[in-house]
Nucleic acid binder design. Sequence first.
DNA 1: ATGGTAGCCCTGCTA
Length: 263
Amino acid sequence: MRLATWNVNSLKARLDRVLQWIAAVEPDVVCMQETKLTDSAVPALAFRELGYEVAHHGLGQWNGVAIASRVGLEAVTGGLGPAPDGWTDDGGRLVAATCAGVRVVSIYVPNGREVGTEFYAAKLAWLDRLERWLRESCDPQSQLALCGDFNVAPEDRDVWDAAAVHGATHVSPAEREAVARLRAWGLVDAVRRFHPEAGLYTWWDYRAGNFHKNIGMRIDHVYVTKPLAARAVAAERDREARKPSTYPGAPSDHAPLVVDFRD
DNA sequence: ATGGTAGCCCTGCTA
């Protein structure tokens, strides 16, 4: 099974590029984030023509997550659901489905903006709720992939200049600890397994020519349970898809990740 | 040096 994840930054604006990328790479399952669509606005027909069904959870305008699959799409659930303390999901940040026996979860973690703001606190709360959701509704001994835009660079080698961003959002200790707790539940970084080198960024700011200068961060991830990690045979970060010229239309500010598993 | 760009719609907000 070939599994991919990509923050497409508007599936409406990016549709042609996403469809051409899918036709070229032929993933069996594609997690997408920042579709910026309502569920009813999803271009299901265009995906169906390529052989994919789509599960989507979004409110429109902001956020929005999806899973496209050509190997089945069962037991679809959207959102984290309310927590006992009254905490509620702000919407369009998680969708899960079972594809060819693998529980696939597509997430878009809140950006957090600046450390110390209410948005940063909400990001940490969301990650904490996600960890609780994993513990309560998933099994680390099952075949599960948690994919998407985590908005966290786990280590200093995941950013272009650790000193330049020290303590800032995406790299702050509290964010890294929150993501480490996800791994501690029973998840392995499927990309790092094959690529220990520094870099391998998945996001570059549109501004100031940052992509050209390779000023980026590795904030998108494919985290898999150990039974699924045992099936992983290869992983790739597709930098070509971030280039302006490779596919029609403007690129997303994120590059896709592709992980292959043996059947 | 608080810039720079892209996408959304409430031409300001979010990233």
